[in-house]
Amino acid sequence: MYNFDFVKPGSVADAVAALAGEEAQPLSGGQTLIPSMKARLNAPGSLVSLTGIPELVGVCREGDTLVIGAATTHAQVARDAAGDFPGLAALAGQIGDPAVRNKGTIGGSLANNDPSACYPAAALGTGATIVTDRREIAADDYFQGMFTTALEEGEIITSVRLPIPQASAYAKFVQPASRFALTAAFVARYASGVRVAITGASENGVFRWAEAEAALSSDFSANALDGLAHSAHEMIADLHGTAAYRAHLVGVMTRRAVAAAGS
């Protein structure tokens, strides 16, 4: 990879200042960034590590909301969210593999917004709030297509606030080589209704499946989805699955997530 200067600030303020430098990029767990740098697809002038900032790490419950520091690893979420939000903990426990989960972070995943990543489904599926060094962004506004988010240059995620649902589950059909999602569904039931977020399937990145949400909001059962099929329009087609196959999996995974969530 290209060389760069390595900076490891101890506070968010120092990190933001460092990121104002020319061609500076934040580094969190690095599980996607480092491979892309090895392939020379990414050439930061300096990397600003966010893993030395204590306030960015941790999982805590505030009322009906789970607040997760942006630099919290997947492994820590899988462990520490298990009591308050088991659906999220289970999702975190399915990302990558154990070693990846020990390094990768929720903030890094959301900032990258890979169309096949797991966390975007949880954030969008819960209607989470993405908290940055300068503002709060609703998940519905945050995800703006493949690898595209509402984040501005130099803006860093500090935490994610996820409303805790009454029931939730994540059903992931794994892309067997990369271990990302070929297609996966996150389903969350709230008093106000049901949210369904799909990852891995669309050329536009993570999305909500409105028809399924409507059906499930009136009847939270897998049967409620009978007869409902997602269109193959703008679905990803690659050597692991056709667009039609992914569209089909949207239905299968959503039904499985609902069944796993219980009532």
Binding site: L27, G30, Q31, I34, S49, K103
Partner: peptide, 29 residues
């Protein structure tokens, strides 16, 4: 490998399994 898949490089960092090909030494002072 160079995509963080194969795990031949796994070591323990502070007791946890980590892919040593996907971590910067400078980050682990």
């Amino acid at each position: 490998c160079d995509t963080s898949q194969c795990g031949a490089c796994v070591v323990l960092v502070n007791g946890q399994a980590v892919k040593s090909c996907t971590a910067f030494a400078a980050d682990l002072e």
